[in-house]
Simulated scan of single mutants.
Amino acid sequence: MTKRKKLSNGQSRRIQANHEKRLSTAKQSGTKNDDSWQSDNLGVAESALVISRFGQHADIETSNNERLRCNIRRTVSNIVCGDRVIFRRAKVSAGDLAGVIEAVEERTSQLTRPDFYDGVKVVAANIDQILMVSAALPEFTPNIIDRYLVACEDMGIEPILILNKTDLLSADTLAEIDAVLDIYRNIGYRVHLISTKTGQGIDELKALLVDKNSIFVGQSGVGKSTLVNSLLPDSQILTQIVSENSGLGQHTTTVSTLHHLPSGGNLIDSPGIREFGLWHIDPDRVTWCFTEFREYLGGCKFRDCKHLNDPGCLLTTALKEGKISQLRFDSYHKILLSMEDGRAGARNPRV
């Protein structure tokens, strides 16, 4: 397995500066000396599930299905939706805060994304499968699908592709998109076509989620929140239509939230994002994350083969022989190029 490159000195300095700033803010606010969180005002340690995270507070669910809002010890970092945590109740509560989270249990998996200021940021924890939602509106973009697939392969979390809003497509357009999706089916990915208006694929979607910890990801406006509403009619999640002016989706979910499904399993509704950066991953690792490339890796004539016009390249030979799709091959190189731009942005972040 290819090792990931370490963060640059500049990135490390920015991350450390941000951490020190947060600690300083916590000290100034008196969190450290708040009597509500001293040991003599706290009960025994209990286990709980993080339902949502709000700054220095988190909503948790206990083993007795109680929903509580807790403070987070400043020594505990990186708590996210889906985490299992250890908390202690306050004997005398502080406002609407019922206790304090003191530790995070080891994760089985985590969904991450790079952040220019904080390095690699964890989005959700203990995920069994990632459902990547795309749609014809705002735009069906295979390259974004490939970005998510790289992230899933890198993290070892099973991806499932969802084409939503099929009711908005003409028969011809649906056939064209489905032909593209055949590329993913042929390399082993599961693909499902969904419409909340017609009910197409909803029963199959529900079956996919049984007894699993799942998360929807995808661009804003592809209908993730509408899908959650169809699975959880009582969730009352806000939805918006795609902007007619920009053609871009509007951000409707602002905080990741975990929902329990009636049939079993949990579903995390996460904020929509229009891009999924991969600049924190080593380029060789990205190549490995294209699953159909793996059988050709290590066999090129030159060890530093760029898989473009290099003589003796097994990937370009496989492309010419039709064993690798042109769409995925082009997407791979677009990702590598965007990673270079991302690393440049990390060295010179916008302020």
Score class of each variant (00 low, 15 high):
Lys91Asp: 09
Ala94Ser: 12
Gly95Tyr: 04
Ala98Val: 01
Ala98Pro: 02
Ile101Phe: 07
Glu102Ile: 15
Glu102Phe: 05
Ala103Gln: 15
Val104Phe: 05
Thr108Phe: 06
Asp115Asn: 15
Tyr117Ser: 14
Asp118Cys: 12
Asp118Thr: 09
Asp118Lys: 14
Gly119Pro: 07
Val120Glu: 15
Lys121Trp: 04
Lys121Ser: 11
Val122Leu: 07
Val123Arg: 02
Val123Trp: 04
Val123His: 06
Ala124Ser: 10
Ala125Ser: 15
Asn126Trp: 04
Asp128Leu: 01
Met132Phe: 12
Met132Gly: 04
Val133Thr: 08
Ser134Lys: 06
Ser134Leu: 03
Ser134Cys: 14
Ala135Gly: 10
Ala135Val: 09
Ala136Arg: 12
Glu139His: 14
Glu139Tyr: 12
Thr141Cys: 14
Pro142His: 03
Ile145Arg: 01
Ile145Ala: 03
Ile145Val: 13
Ile145Trp: 00
Asp146Gly: 02
Arg147Lys: 12
Leu149Val: 04
Leu149Phe: 03
Ala151Ile: 01
Asp154Gln: 12
Asp154Leu: 06
Glu158Thr: 00
Glu158Ala: 00
Leu161Gln: 00
Leu161Glu: 02
Ile162Val: 13
Leu163Gly: 03
Thr166Ser: 13
Asp167Lys: 07
Leu168Phe: 05
Ser170Met: 06
Ser170Lys: 09
Ala171Glu: 15
Thr173Glu: 15
Ala175Met: 10
Asp178Ala: 14
Asp178Gln: 13
Val180Phe: 06
Val180Ala: 08
Leu181Cys: 04
Asp182Phe: 07
Tyr184Asn: 00
Asn186Ser: 14
Asn186Lys: 12
Ile187Phe: 02
Gly188Cys: 05
Gly188Leu: 00
Gly188Tyr: 01
Arg190Gln: 09
Val191Ala: 01
His192Pro: 03
His192Phe: 11
Ile194Arg: 02
Ser195Glu: 04
Lys197Glu: 14
Lys197Thr: 10
Gln200Thr: 11
Gly201Leu: 06
Gly201Glu: 05
Ile202Asp: 05
Asp203Arg: 13
Glu204Arg: 09
Leu205Met: 11
Leu205Glu: 04
Ala207Pro: 11
Leu208His: 08
Leu209Pro: 13
Val210Lys: 12
Val210Met: 08
Lys212Val: 03
Lys212Gly: 00
